[in-house]
Amino acid sequence: MRRYSKEFGRKEKVLNYATQTYQLSRPNKVGAVMALIRECQPKTIDEWEQWYFANARTDGKVSLKITRENLEELGERLYVKIKEIVIPEWTEAFNQLTLQDCVDYIINLTINRTFDGFIREKSVVEDNLAKEFPKVRFEESDPALDHAGDIDYLGWVGEKAFGIQIKPVTSQGNFGNYSATERMKASFINFSKKFGGNVFVVFSEKEKIKNVEVIGQIAAEVALLSR
């Protein structure tokens, strides 16, 4: 099968890093591209490109039509971010990096961060959600589901369940700007089809739920699944 994607060689990693870090490929910038292409069902790349620019709009409170100039402007922003921020930061980090940093990082990532994440997740559920919803049975997702569906916990309401994804607020900085990836959105849809309930993203900081509005959303879901 012919591939149309351009190869960027060694530059791919830095391009991908900066694009993700500065959220330049999110739906609020380029639209929900996977949903768009599934709606289009193109037979050729030219058909897809024409349909995209005719129909794509930004995903957000203010929906704007996307043009080629918009994508070019995002590319220009990416270049500036890499040249003015990423390269200087990485150069400084490279110059300061030691063997002990590498050893400590692997151990910290494997032991310390895993433990912190485990305790944080359990506290969010046991010290927060379980007390808010005593009739809901919460259980950790099995590894296969966690990997495939981005679900950390299931909340059982009778024979149906809703999903919980727990994210540390520090991973987003401003969790209000968080937007699930197209892959995650598809995973959430598959979860809903299988278990009957929606998936809710809970942002935590020091074991406390930061996006407190999610409590009301879960309460409405519990009521719906209880019918």
Rank of each mutant, 00 (worst) to 15 (best):
K193W: 07
D152M: 06
T170A: 14
A186S: 12
A144G: 05
Q165E: 11
S179L: 12
A186N: 14
I166F: 05
A161M: 11
E140C: 12
I189W: 05
P143Y: 13
A186F: 03
K193Q: 06
I164P: 10
G158Y: 08
G155W: 07
S179P: 15
F191L: 07
S141G: 14
L154F: 14
F175A: 00
F162H: 01
M184D: 10
G158D: 06
L145G: 00
S192G: 07
F162R: 05
D146P: 00
E139R: 14
E140H: 08
G173N: 09
N190G: 05
K167T: 04
D146K: 15
G163W: 03
G173W: 08
T181E: 04
T170P: 00
V157H: 04
Y178Q: 08
H147V: 08
S192P: 09
G163C: 04
S171P: 00
S187P: 11
F175K: 03
N190Y: 03
N190L: 07
I164W: 06
V169T: 08
A186K: 08
K185H: 07
Q172S: 07
L145Y: 03
I164D: 05
F191T: 00
V169R: 00
R183F: 15
R137H: 15
P168T: 01
H147A: 12
I151V: 15
S141F: 03
F138M: 06
A186T: 09
L154T: 08
G176E: 13
I166N: 02
R137A: 13
I164S: 04
L145T: 09
S179H: 05
E139K: 11
E159W: 10
V169G: 01
E139M: 12
A180C: 03
L154W: 07
I166D: 02
E182T: 05
I164G: 06
H147D: 12
T170Y: 11
A161W: 10
D146A: 10
E139I: 15
N174V: 09
S187C: 01
G155H: 04
G173M: 13
T181R: 02
